[in-house]
Amino acid sequence: MDILVCIKKVPDTADAEVILRSDGKGIEEEDLAFGINEWDNYAVEEAIRLKEKEGGKVAVVTIGTGDDEDILRRCLAMGADDAYRIDSSPFYMDDPYSVAKGLSAFAKKHSFDLIMTGVMAGDMSYAMTGPLTAGMLGIPHTTLVTSIDVKDGNISVTRELEGGLEESVRLELPALLTIQTGINEPRYVSIMGIRKVRSKEIPVLRAEELGLSAEEIGEQGAVLELESLERPPEGKEAEMISGSPDEIAEKILEIVKGVV
């Protein structure tokens, strides 16, 4: 089974102080650490596990700059067979449609049985790139996948729903899945492992080679345009209750009574 995993490099903003850029259309990147999008990492791991079980090959692709090649190499070290970079310069990267156009054009040039993406990317959290790509390719897709089982040319997957519910879905191949975190425990990739694949070639594809024009994928062709980024309004501060344990309990009781 040949699998394509679409990945992206994103900043880690979990603990960092995010500073908005003065034009309001991005964030200051200087003090931020970048790495493979967390969801994508699970997708790559899952693809490699499927390959180890079912045979076939795993390819990874990103639309990015030369700086983004380190996450591709990391995937090669994990066990992916091929890695491709689509040069991002003509793309309007804030629009998931542009990105999906690039990915689907790439997928069409190869033949994959299964395409995986993360459920969403940690930067913009659109969760659209996967479904849009499937739509453009005209293949079935499902999202929020937490387990995959391959059976006679079909796949059965489990989806995570609200409230702890799970849904089982069967899809015909080829198909696209967006992978939820926790589906597996991604393996650790050592620097030595990355060194071992340092000489492996990563082909760089230009949009023209994929049959895409700058108008289609650039800002003028964008379906979705980023107007501005803003901080959410600050909520009320938490109240720290001081005093002896008995006094604290007393105060908490009063607050709870007030709410009820």
Binding site: D12, D15, L32, A33, G35
Partner: peptide, 17 residues
């Protein structure tokens, strides 16, 4: 290890801090 790789410290602390 991933924190050291990404943040250059083991405590997932951002560079800015």
């Amino acid at each position: 290890l991933e924190s050291v790789y990404k943040f250059k410290n083991p405590w997932q602390g951002s560079k800015g801090k």
